[in-house]
Design a protein around this nucleic acid. Structure first.
Length: 196
DNA sequence: CCAACGATGGTCT
DNA sequence: GACCATCGTTGGC
């Protein structure tokens, strides 16, 4: 079952936690690829200098200010993409970065996209999962309930029990705002980008 | 195991 | 011209 509009329009920190265990799937050439979200980070509009929206709207970050439930994708280090779920209220400029998935669907396709055969190396980082799922700036601004790129609830696929334990840590790969505990992970999950 | 570093290009000052 | 919400490789233990 798809994530509902109401489930998406909640405070960003809460959404970052509740997205854990949900499924991110992309239909490419009629084939479904993707997996279960195991690691996220919240980026806030207030008191968060690491957030792209911290200094207001620019060409790059404008979709961060759009409706919750849309996709925000940007290019990082000239070669990778990062995928976010726009959150909070329209106009606020907040989002949840999806940092890792447990690969579930279309493993062979994802191996091909990533040029590796190691399952643990397919989606264990924001750049990796975007590459595995063929997410690029073409998906920037699409609706995650209606486009080929979608979010499904935890109970949608019977791959694991839906009860999970969440833990948190400081965020990864940033300088400013690095002391804030806004990274959330499924406890003891082998598919995260780095242990807590 | 791990720290260091280069690739690579869009965005912002 | 500097800075990046990264990753793969390299070279040291």
């Amino acid at each position: 079952m798809l994530i509902t509009k109401d489930e998406l329009e909640i405070p960003t920190k809460r959404l970052a936690k509740s997205l854990l265990g949900c499924f991110l799937v992309h239909t490419v050439n009629g084939q479904l690829i993707g997996g279960r979200i195991v690691e996220t980070e919240a980026y806030l509009s207030k008191n968060d200098p690491a957030c792209h929206a911290h200094k207001g709207m620019t060409k790059r970050n404008e979709t961060m200010f759009s409706r919750p439930g849309l996709s925000y994708v940007y290019l990082i280090y000239g070669m990778y993409h990062c995928f976010n779920v726009v959150s909070a209220k329209e106009g606020q400029g907040e989002a949840v970065l999806i940092r890792a998935l447990e690969p579930v669907f279309g493993l062979e396709e994802m191996k091909h996209n990533r040029n590796t055969v190691k399952i643990a190396n397919l989606c264990s980082g924001p750049g990796k999962l975007a590459q595995a799922l063929a997410i690029t700036k073409e998906q920037n601004g699409v609706c995650l309930r209606k486009s080929q790129l979608r979010l499904h609830r935890r109970e949608s696929f019977k791959t694991k029990p839906s009860r999970i334990k969440v833990c948190s840590s400081t965020r990864i790969g940033i300088n400013q705002g690095s002391e804030l505990a806004l990274r959330f992970l499924i406890e003891k999950n082998p598919f995260v980008s780095k242990p807590a």
